[in-house]
């Protein structure tokens, strides 16, 4: 057999191995966690205000889910404390996106200030806070972690992905702040726990 053909066959075999391994790896990761499927009783009331913490596109997914679940909501990625008038539940979708911040012409410092102001107001008004994080561990970089640390103490219910909790960061956060935590396999499992907070 010619060396060139041998190299091509080896390359294809390596590619197939990577694909097979990727699938197995994903399944292994899924099997290694036990998650709380949803809340036993509702903790939140409508109207909900869905906002972003970090200006990631994930907030748009939560908004879509809320609309499909017929949960009355306002969707304001850059909601201010004044927008909490008449709101019973504040939903933070956490995920730092540099490009998202650029589109809205905001920077990280002003974003942090906005979130802190929202949290203070919700605390004053006794508004329920639900925090959702649907990124993985790779996306949970320094700024996203800081935002989660800021929001968690005021959070009433935390929903995150198993992939983001491989080092126990989310479970530790829930434990230290004594908040219920639901870990989901992926974004498609989000509807049930999210709806359980309202119904």
């Amino acid at each position: 057999m010619k060396m060139k053909s041998f190299k091509i066959i080896m390359l294809i075999a390596l590619l197939l191995l990577l694909i097979v391994n990727a699938t197995i790896f994903e399944k292994k990761k899924e099997a290694s966690f036990n998650s709380l499927p949803s809340l036993p009783k509702p903790i939140a009331k409508e109207y909900a205000l869905i906002t972003s913490a970090g200006q990631g596109t994930d907030a748009y997914i939560i908004n879509d889910i809320a609309n499909k679940m017929m949960i009355h909501n306002y969707f304001m990625p850059q909601a201010e404390a004044t927008n909490l008038e008449g709101i019973n539940t504040l939903v933070f979708v956490v995920g730092y996106s540099p490009m998202g911040e650029k589109i809205h012409n905001v920077n990280y410092v002003s974003e942090k200030k906005r979130i802190i102001a929202l949290l203070e107001k919700s605390n004053e008004e006794n508004i329920t806070v639900i925090t959702v994080y649907i990124g993985g561990k790779q996306q949970r970089e320094k700024r996203t972690e800081e935002l989660l640390n800021i929001i968690s103490p005021e959070t009433d219910y935390l929903i995150g992905t198993k992939a983001a909790n491989t080092d126990g960061f989310l479970s530790e956060l829930a434990k230290s702040n004594r908040i219920p935590l639901t870990l989901i396999n992926g974004v498609n499992d989000l509807s049930e726990p999210f709806a359980s907070a309202f119904r």
């Binding site: 990631g56 596109t57 994930d58 997914i61 996106s97 540099p98 490009m99 998202g100 649907i134 990124g135 993985g136 790779q138 996306q139 974004v187």
Partner: peptide, 8 residues
């Protein structure tokens, strides 16, 4: 940021 947003 962007590729992950597309994937999710």
């Amino acid at each position: 940021d962007i590729p992950f947003s597309i994937k999710i």
